[in-house]
Amino acid sequence: MTQVSKTMVTRPDDTASSRPDAGRARSGVRRVGEAVALYAPVLMLVVLVIVASVLNDRFWAPENLRNMLTQNSALALVAFGMTLVIIAGVFDLSVGAIFAAGSVIFAMLSNEVLLLPAALITVVVGALAGAVNAYVVNSLRVNSFIGTLATGAVFSGLVYILCDSSPVQARREGFETLGLGRIAGVPCALIVAVAAFGLCAALLNGTIFGRYVFAVGGNAAAAHLTGVPVRAVRAACFVLVGALAALGGMITGSQLGLGQPTLGSNIALDAFAVVVIGGTSVYGGRGALWRTASAVLVLATLTNIFNALAWDTTRQSVAKGLIIIAAVALDAARSRSDHA
């Protein structure tokens, strides 16, 4: 009898609804495959770092590393928020607009009030934008892909109106500190990114809320029947990514010394790329923050390599697009073998 029950817990190899049929011999292969998939971003990072060390003899120079990390901190913030949103089974395509809004509003406010209140208000505005997204998706029941594409257009238009379609020069002293300053030699931007990572990772892995994020993305209807507050969980994710996107925009704006309404046109795609390269499933319910973080480093190293090869941004764009397709195809192949 023990044998019967044991075979019942092996993995199914055909459909989700049918019987588990994986032979024991195959499960070993499968486990190796899963481990590779799990650590793929780290493996990729190791390979790319080796390539970069060979191609760029200044790769390990502290200045180069510091630049790499500083330049990608804003992206990391957005990607961390995006990871939660995608695990919860929704998308947020309005992050680019919120990102631009962050830079513009921070620059405008800092010209009027002190930096700290300016920063806090900007983050709150980002969170409010997230709340608008939550309203559209939850209460108006608009598909999140379309809904946030549309709210993104609205947010972006409002930002252009706000700054009269031109960059906002920041005049207050210390405006660049957030993006370019250092504390004990460590870039402020990096500190913010690491703090955001800590916050999101703690939320996702340490709390019941985090468990609910996975549940909602894994099967929203089932989660609802089980008593999970599905809408509240999604709303919290939208608010979080909104706040982080605004913060990211502030960092980039601070690095440029101005508020720029055209910022962030690529940030949604880049954040998306990083999340899927990190192996978070676009179907929801699966993913991990540390893998997104590794994927940010992958992208950063890749950009470094491209620069060392003297590739311009157009070629980089082609390469990036292809990498995203490869990552999503891998995700699809994996969920096919799991589910259908």
């Binding site: 549940a215 894994g218 099967n219 989660a223 089980t226």
Partner: peptide
């Protein structure tokens, strides 16, 4: 207990059992 399964396939057995009543 519903007619259609209301488990979350991507979560562990343990977390499914206590989902919503941890």
């Amino acid at each position: 207990i519903y007619q259609e399964l209301s488990v979350i396939p991507s979560m562990s057995v343990l977390h499914n059992v206590f989902l919503g009543s941890e």
